[in-house]
Design a protein around this nucleic acid. Structure first.
Lengths: 334, 334
DNA sequence: CTGAAAGCGCTAACAA
DNA sequence: TTGTTAGCGCTTTCAG
């Protein structure tokens, strides 16, 4: 492999000049610059990442902690990761992938100076990883909202507003008896922030609007979805509209409803909280509040870069929910 | 951050001794070792990854090129990635994530000495990335089977054998008219290796067994699945069994069949080629040939490590398919 | 069994 | 506008 000295020699300049041509941190005359660039091209030179990191204490790598356990919301995770990776590339950064449960990984990549910053997905209200962030010098951006976001950068969809929005939409369509098919019990049990926030928005708005509102947690399996639907139809048969916040269960909820002879939207309106492509991939196109996972991922990187540039303090950004009406809640002509 | 010199000073030894304690490449006396270890613990010392890479030309990072585009087989991708990451950790390696389309990324991480090796998912029969591998010094392991795997390490499920196995299973259950609901047309168009291999196995075995076999490519959408099912039932109404090799379409295929009044397995047997958890997440538990994505990921890392250790030449490993019979193809009592 | 010292390839003062 | 030089923190000969 060619080194910076090889390039310098070939171009008839010093190594530092090559370095400055590469970094642009110094003004270089036209002729010199082109000689250097040509030498770089001819030799196929690439700076050695380790050497660079050692000298500059910058790795151009961002760590991403992602929940790789299968099961829940694979789509969302993938889109999110895609957003992070592609946006990082826009800033000439690469992404090191850590699994959610690799608690030690946090310290490893951080203390070992493997990365310049950290993005943590799927942060829970009380998250064991959050306290660990305090002791490290690299900035972190969290996806989700810990109970105490003091001094931390956070991004997420405003799930509470999303809950309210869904309910208001249904209210406007004339519904007065609604239900939420929510996250799996274990997700709620571990106080996953987004699940609780959506639930809160759903409940408060329903109450504010004087609607009767039932909540049914739901396993992300066919059996779980069937159970949830069956329970719901039995215990609250007067329900005319559903909010579904459970991507994996969604198709099974719909198929169970159809098995019960409930037509969508005629007998039952449904609003889903999920990525648009999931909403469109259902048997009936779903009215949905988009979970803009890719956009959030990109935004997380933008925030990381702002922090790295030093011009930004930590901030929390909650994206306003957007509801798109589709067939599943459309008021049909009588 | 504490450096190796800090540790050496604290322990009253030289830096090289600390290094050797860490690497185990030299015999160190008991007392010395424990003094060093204590100093490391007290100072919370972590070797600087860049410095280490510079001095040793080893990064302990593996690059993983994954198809992050959403749509097809997200589950499979996630499981695969999970397998790679967790197994890499077993060998004290981390994973740098590249997107499939980031062709330049290959050269970047490789020439820049950011990684020790490469794992490439979803390799197609004729893949633009494969020729690029020739010029780099880091070993690569491919998931999938390029047309010409000369000198490259490859792992994958033996899809051709899987196709044959599915057909043999159905033959044994008495079926003589079968159909394949396959990959999306565009996947076949780009000569995706696994799609073609499964197709080949399906066709050859059906022919060998004297069965009539129809093939229907299928978009990974509800509409696509409906179309495929409708076409099939119309053009080959005598079909009594289906092989589905299309994870995303699977639920929609099943729901369409049920809408057509075809009961599974009574009217139509179905064998799916997909991860076990997907097979179990359907309305009817699916007889399936497992796509052991996580295992393949782990295996890929094992092969990487063998190559890095230098003891292994490149080799191709095709995993034997395993079929598990479940309700969707069970012969029911008359 | 341990230490000294020479780099690994790059960046960023400091000089000119 | 460019060059010189001193590290960055570690690994690994070479010596003892």
């Amino acid at each position: 492999m060619a080194t910076i000295d090889d390039v310098a020699r070939a171009a008839g300049v010093s190594a530092s000049t090559v370095s400055y041509v590469l970094s642009g941190k110094r003004k270089i005359s036209g002729p010199t610059r082109s000689r250097v660039e040509q030498a770089i091209a001819e030799l196929g030179y690439r700076p050695h990442a380790g050497a660079r990191a050692l000298a500059s204490s910058r790795t151009n790598v961002i760590a991403l902690m992602a929940p790789l356990r299968v099961g829940v919301d694979v789509h969302v995770i993938m889109q999110f990761v895609a957003g992070v990776v592609t946006r990082a590339r826009d800033f000439d950064h690469d992404v090191l992938l850590l699994t959610q449960d690799d608690l030690g990984g946090l310290d490893r990549v951080t203390s070992g100076s493997m990365v310049d910053a950290l993005v943590m997905m799927d942060v829970e209200a009380v998250d064991p990883r959050v306290p660990l962030l305090a002791s490290q010098r690299q900035p972190a951006v969290l996806i989700g909202l810990p109970q105490d976001p003091a001094g931390l950068s956070c991004v997420d969809l405003d799930f509470e507003a999303a809950g309210r929005l869904a309910v208001r939409h249904l209210f406007a369509a004339g519904h007065r008896d609604i239900a939420l098919v929510g996250s799996p019990p274990q997700v709620l049990d571990r106080h996953t922030s987004y699940a609780e926030r959506l639930l809160r928005g759903f409940r408060t708005q329903a109450e504010a609007s004087g609607m009767s509102a039932v909540v049914e947690p739901c396993e992300p399996t066919p059996a779980g979805a069937y159970r949830a639907v069956d329970t719901l139809l039995e215990q609250a048969p007067q329900t005319t509209a559903l909010v579904v916040h459970n991507e994996s269960a969604l198709p099974h909820v719909l198929s169970r409803l159809s098995r019960h002879g409930r037509r969508i939207p005629d007998d039952l309106a449904v609003v889903a909280v999920c990525p648009t492509d999931v909403a469109l991939a259902q048997a009936v196109p779903m009215t949905s509040i988009d979970l803009p996972a890719e956009a959030i991922g990109r935004l997380a990187i933008d925030m990381v870069m702002a922090r790295l540039a030093g011009d930004q303090p930590a901030e929390t950004r909650l994206l306003a929910p957007v509801l798109t009406e589709r067939a599943s809640s459309r008021v049909t002509a009588p």
